[in-house]
């Protein structure tokens, strides 16, 4: 286990020892009117995306306040490992890290939740969104040109106009982002195209990002022409950006991540935490109708959905293996970080 932890140490911000002294990316308290207890929700998702659904929860449970703490997926993993009992709900987009925590016995078994089999693991870890990785392009950069629909298209487009794209391609820094690493490993698993694309991107001096949000902002403001493996869902939360950018889900093979949530065994507020989890995974009313829809929740006709998802299974631990990870990062660095001539 120390080894996984070491990964965290290697990759994430310098950790402060105490949770409370920690610098969160975002920290927001949803104050309940008849507050009696506070749920501490550890999440990798921007507050703005979840605010509506948390507001709804607080409305329905007027005695439960929710403290929403946001950090990156890898940091989240390490923070939780160190202070498991400080949190009541853990939400993350890094399915592999979440699965590892569950596999290590940190998730509370919650029985009697009717949730599709492929969207849960061991009655502890529950998936509640389906978010495909997308190619996001700046409309201006492709004005009058065919927009790439597949990874192969993208390679051709990049090769066709290297001078346009040099320095203006973005993707996740897989060393820093858990989600980026998950997308990259799943892409690599699915097709060799991934490596060719990385090489092309490397040769064009690709920019590396920690988060989807920043990539989207940079595509929108023209710093980037293309961003690869971005969460399309974030784009919907930026209505004004949508005018400048286009979100393309590659049609060759989709890599779709499911955001997952679990209640740590260590929590002292089990029932409140469980009802929060149920609120997330079983939206009581149609959230999209209420205008709460900022993340694509799993729908109830998921059979064909299950296929395109990254499977929620213990094999996700494979790329967390320290040897595998070292090798993968090595290969990735070799491809994307090329000495500029």
């Amino acid at each position: 286990m120390r080894y996984f932890y070491l990964i965290g140490m290697m990759l994430c911000f310098v950790m402060s020892g105490a949770v409370f002294a920690k610098d969160w990316e975002e920290q927001h308290l949803f104050q309940a009117p008849n507050h009696t207890l506070t749920l501490r929700v550890l999440s990798s998702t921007d507050t703005s995306l979840f605010a509506p659904i948390i507001d709804q929860f607080v409305q329905q449970n007027p005695n439960i306040s929710v403290e929403y703490l946001v950090t990156g997926t890898v940091d989240l993993y390490d923070t939780f490992r160190q202070n498991a009992s400080d949190f009541d709900v853990v939400i993350s987009s890094a399915m592999d890290l979440q699965l590892k925590l569950t596999n290590d016995g940190h998730a509370l078994k919650i029985s009697g939740v009717s949730h599709p089999d492929w969207a849960q693991w061991g009655q502890g870890l529950f998936a509640f969104t389906a978010e495909p990785a997308a190619i996001v392009i700046n409309r201006a950069a492709f004005a009058g040109r065919r927009k790439p629909q597949t990874r192969q298209d993208l390679i051709l487009a990049l090769r066709a106009r290297p001078e346009v794209f040099r320095g203006k391609i973005g993707t996740y820094d897989v060393r820093a982002s858990g989600l980026g690493y998950l997308f990259a490993t799943q892409d690599a698993r699915a097709s060799e195209t991934y490596w060719r694309l990385m090489e092309v991107m490397g040769s064009l001096d690709a920019q590396l990002y920690c988060c989807s949000g920043e990539m989207l902002d940079d595509v929108a403001n023209g710093t980037l022409a293309i961003a690869y493996n971005v969460l399309g869902s974030y784009a919907h939360a930026r209505p004004d950006a949508l005018k400048k950018i286009e979100v393309i889900f590659p049609s060759d093979f989709p890599t779709t991540m499911m955001r997952t949530v679990f209640v740590p065994k260590e929590t002292s507020q089990r029932s409140a935490a469980v009802s929060f989890l149920k609120h997330l995974i079983l939206p009581s009313t149609d959230v999209s109708d209420l205008g709460l829809f900022r993340v694509p929740f799993l729908t109830s006709e998921p059979n064909d959905m299950g296929q395109s998802m990254i499977a929620l299974e213990p094999a996700l631990l494979t790329y967390l293996d320290v040897l595998k990870r070292r090798k993968f990062i090595q290969a990735w660095e070799d491809a994307i970080i090329q000495p500029s001539f």
């Binding site: 290590d104 016995g105 698993r189 213990p314």
Partner: peptide
């Protein structure tokens, strides 16, 4: 990947 994925069971064994 298959080394661990063959260990998947319907009852989600750890």
């Amino acid at each position: 990947y298959s080394a661990l994925s063959i260990l998947s069971t319907p009852s989600d064994d750890r």
